[in-house]
Nucleic acid binder design. Structure first.
Lengths: 230, 230
DNA sequence: GCCACAATCTGAACATGTTCAACTTTGATC
DNA sequence: GATCAAAGTTGAACATGTTCAGATTGTGGC
């Protein structure tokens, strides 16, 4: 899968045009949806020729990628605040993920475009691709942090993988949310609460000696999956 | 998402043309991959004009859909045989899924196309869409059957959902397999074995009274997810 | 001010999935 | 066999993501 998500680094004045194109794109994505907003529309809305859009963004997907990157940067502060106001692993897990849902709420359509290639790590636009590794790592670090902070006893063998696994579950929730058509995505809210609770319970239980074989199986599973593409 | 996966029902002689187009498509998909094989190529290979291809298949995806349907029909016999030669839940689970992997092995590229829209049930081509419900139901029935046959005690509350859940896990395995680039998809084999074993162990353990709360959480999860789109 | 070079921008052209109006073949009916 | 509607077939045209050869603009050096 060829990479067309690169983004031109700004020369002196161009930054403003670039911004205009991005803004036009997001506006149109929001108004008509990702597919219905054509590159011609976007360029016109931004007051440039079609080619100019491609001068700044190497593809339509690259626009989404840029949006994704920005969103993640913007969310850092919100996450910090949300975690400050929540305590306990379960609540913090829930709030950490909720920040993302709330942040992306006005742009579910764009996110759908981001996730439309599922988990295929060969597609540059995919939360699992090399191109999004940086974002992914930043995000995984938050899970690491709430795990460490909560002071819960974590089995040594799980420790290194756990943040990544939690991030993976988060992706599941987000994926569900993006497709969720229930009013106000209420169903996703229920899913998120239940997921946070279940994960916390599982973690608590996982330290029991009885659980050793379950942990081993889970670990092997994680290793198979991780070794393949991530 | 508009449905373009319908397929013209055969008039008298047309069946042969239709077959030729399908065969040409599968050949080219196999030789060059799904994206690289254009509808023009396919039509030419079949010795008809581009439009003719669209007379028989309402879209490129419809070809994949047809392939998917046929494959499932063709597999029924193979599954029967495989289950006859295997006993015990774990082995039968493994063999049931392996039949599919083996059957689809020469067409991983086509399957990739089928799964490229991930789990979005709004996309007609998706193992979760209404358009594929019939296929799905047939498939789920096999899981039902090996569950009943194996004589294992299944908690009453899980009973009705379990076949669907197993099917869902199968989709996970297939999804992994489609993306698996390890030599001969050896990694997927390991995943499949581990998954079959884990599922069986979990099921055995699930009857313990201790597990009641875990089952409740799992059930609630299943209900949230199922209620949403399937 | 002017030149050369790079950055920016343009719009026509291309590839590919898809549509469609018109043409041809087929098969039933008389 | 003539007729005609339905089935089958054609290829040009369309929409949209993308490319590209060139036009335009901006900038540093003289």
């Amino acid at each position: 899968m060829p990479d067309r998500t690169e983004v031109r680094i700004a020369g002196p004045k161009s930054e403003e045009t670039r911004e205009r194109i991005l803004k036009a794109a997001l506006t149109l994505f929001h108004e008509r949806g990702f597919e219905a907003a054509t590159m011609r529309d976007i360029a016109e809305e931004a007051g440039v020729a079609t080619g100019a859009a491609y001068y700044y963004f190497s593809s339509k997907d690259a626009i989404v990628m840029d949006f994704y990157r920005r969103s993640c940067t913007e969310m850092q502060g919100k996450i910090e605040v949300a975690l400050k106001n929540a305590s306990g692993l379960e609540r913090r897990l829930r709030e950490l993920i909720r920040v993302k849902l709330v942040h992306f709420a006005p742009h579910r359509g764009v996110l759908r475009a981001l996730l439309r290639n599922g988990a295929d790590p060969k597609h540059p636009l995919s939360p699992f691709s090399p191109q999004t590794k940086e974002i992914r790592d930043v995000d995984i670090a938050w899970f690491q942090r709430i795990l460490v902070d909560c002071g819960m006893r974590i089995p040594k063998d799980l420790e290194s993988h756990l943040p990544g696994v939690l991030w993976f579950f988060q992706m599941g929730v987000i994926f569900f949310w993006v497709l969720d058509e229930s009013p106000d995505q209420a169903r996703s809210d229920r899913l998120l609460s239940l997921a946070a609770k279940s994960v916390t319970s599982l973690l608590r239980v996982s330290t029991l000696p009885l659980m050793r074989p379950v942990r081993r199986a889970a670990l092997e599973l994680v290793e198979i999956v991780k070794g393949a593409d991530l």
